[in-house]
Design a binder for these strands. Structure first.
Lengths: 357, 357
DNA sequence: CTGTTAGCGCCTTCAC
DNA sequence: GTGAAGGCGCTAACAG
């Protein structure tokens, strides 16, 4: 389906030109469409393209023009939350005529920087960093430097679902109201009558985890309850560590409800309760965070805080791509979140201490 | 942190050379490491690189050398199954010193071809197509042509979790024993005592869906049961369509068990049973396929066919990257699968027709 | 409308 | 050891 090219590799624009009996410039112009050629020539060229199975060399093209690439960087490609956000990015990128690729740090946060560099080397137009991450001062500094470098290359860095506490840098951020969501979630438990509400927190180095904790504590205080450190456990927001931490919480304390940092760890908590012979929600109520598809399938259906994942991704992409002259160097958008009530919350069990084993 | 470059964009190798007082050739050589320069010069260059925040232009480099890119193409970036496979690809690609990017057709199968072309344009070394897909004769022909084109460009196409029924083409394929898995799953139900076993099939255009159907029918026949078309419904393997199809199956037939094409639709089936007031597994047994993480969290835990998702991805990548002179143009590897028993299967309810409402 | 001529940023001979 | 020169595939600027 393609014979007689000059070299052995991919056919080049020169091969096409030769075959169509025109100059490379003509081929280039016809292919980029930005130009009206006589239908006859046009057809000759297209025919040659077909015959040779020619596709432009995007790399060579990127040497002169924009790359048209938007990249999403996630920590873990198998995380539903991340990938839902990524799909929002994808959607918006496509709508803006860009190509979207997703890269992962494979769970190694330090790799974030090298991935960004690699992306910069490829000339991407936007780098969208999704999700929380260790935020040591050094890392933030390097991230800021990376943002500067991208900026100089005409590319944009945007944080999605993570806030920025580093030095001033050309970075946009899109986040959802995590603290407010955590407040609402805790409040939901409180108003159901619970007084011993535990929190299955995320890693304390993550600002998003701290925001959840703050919302939780604020809700407690608003109810006149002083947060009890014994009721706060932490996990790394996976199902496994959530399971373990919840188990400790449920056996070691008199908690009748637990607000989890995300749905994954909440799923672990539900499993832990079940394994301990505690019924959810009769013996213990559970609230998650994120509202990933899983929330609907765990049993009982997980009451959780809905985070607009796709919209997070779409907004981030818009911020990166739709820039005009007057825009400030750092833009910030905050999306709202709300509770989705399913079946994992009920009033606390009869006062007759069914709560402590 | 980076001033005084010639132009305004990213710094080029020329800027580095200038600043380090050497020729671009020297910089190039030092950066590619393939060369011993006097430590003193070396250091001068590295210092300039740092100062300018220089990174090579990967696109320019790809003009001459290999791109080092491996691409996974999935239909839906939010599908756990696909992303688990993708993470296997990622792992192996990284182990082989390549960079992995994932692209999606965004649920539009026809887009598969354009994504492949785009990837070819970028000069990727391998394109790994994950998951089933409509396999019309025309599409297969175009896919074969795309494989040829990739091959000519020195790149490899490999199908992962999908078999190849198209014309001869330079394509490798890695699949798991779907038919065998379906046989085992159905057999599991049969040997638990069920005789009215339904099948919640996938789209009939997908070969992987047909393989499941065949395994199901073969198991039935091995038990002396002739497949009953009324017991076969189909969905597009999402939770929603699975729910709908299962609902029909459970209200319209006397099925006491259902073998689902994948875990997502099985989750839908479980939800449908629950909504109909049928207990799983007491009133109806359910078996899934794939063994995605969700299987553990639905209630009751889903008995399912384990598909080695990561290994599928790793193998595919190895096939693509580890080629030596004598290798045949089409390689094929088949991985095994096995049943994972959880709680969604039990013997059929008392003979007293509890099965029909 | 079309061809010719320069580069884009990098790597790679080939001389020195 | 190092520099100068040519070319990778493509687009843009400038003639005709």
């Amino acid at each position: 389906m393609a014979r007689g090219r000059s070299s052995s590799g991919r056919p080049t624009i020169r091969d096409v030109a030769e075959r169509a009996q025109v100059s490379v410039a003509t081929v280039s112009r016809i292919l980029s469409g930005s130009y009206t050629a006589p239908p006859e020539t046009q057809e000759r060229v297209m025919k040659a393209v077909e015959a040779l199975d020619y596709v432009v060399n995007a790399n060579a093209r990127s040497l002169n023009a924009r790359s048209g690439l938007v990249a999403v960087v996630v920590n873990d490609i198998t995380s539903p939350f991340f990938m839902n956000v990524a799909s929002g990015v994808e959607e918006q990128a496509m709508a803006d005529g860009r190509v979207c690729i997703v890269c992962s740090t494979q769970g190694v946060p330090e790799r974030e920087l090298s991935v960004i560099e690699l992306l910069r080397a490829r000339g991407v137009e936007a780098v969208i960093l999704v999700g929380g991450m260790a935020e040591g001062e050094q890392h933030l500094g390097q991230l800021a430097a990376a943002a500067e470098a991208l900026d100089r290359a005409g590319a944009r860095m945007v944080l999605c679902g993570r806030s920025w506490a580093g030095p001033d840098a050309p970075i946009d951020v899109v986040e959802s109201d995590v603290e407010g969501g955590a407040f609402a979630a805790t409040n939901h438990l409180l108003s159901a009558g619970h007084t011993r509400v535990a929190h299955l927190a995320g890693p304390h180095e993550f600002s998003v985890a701290r925001q959840r904790l703050h919302g939780y504590e604020r809700a407690l205080r608003a109810y006149g309850i002083e947060p009890d450190p014994a009721l706060i456990a932490s996990s790394d927001m996976t199902r496994e560590t959530g399971y373990a931490a919840a188990r400790t919480l449920l056996t070691g304390t008199d908690a009748t409800a637990v607000f989890c940092a995300n749905d994954m760890s909440a799923a672990g908590a539900v499993a832990a309760a079940r394994d301990l012979g505690r019924s959810v929600p009769d013996d213990v109520s559970v609230v998650g965070f994120d509202d990933i598809p899983l929330a609907e399938d765990v049993y009982p259906g997980l009451t959780t805080v809905h985070v607009p994942q796709q919209e997070l991704g779409r907004s981030a992409t818009r911020l990166a791509l739709h820039r005009r002259a007057g825009d400030p160097p750092r833009r910030h958008v905050m999306l709202g979140s709300h509770i989705v009530v399913r079946q994992s919350v009920a009033p606390p069990a009869r006062l007759s201490g069914k709560g402590t084993p």
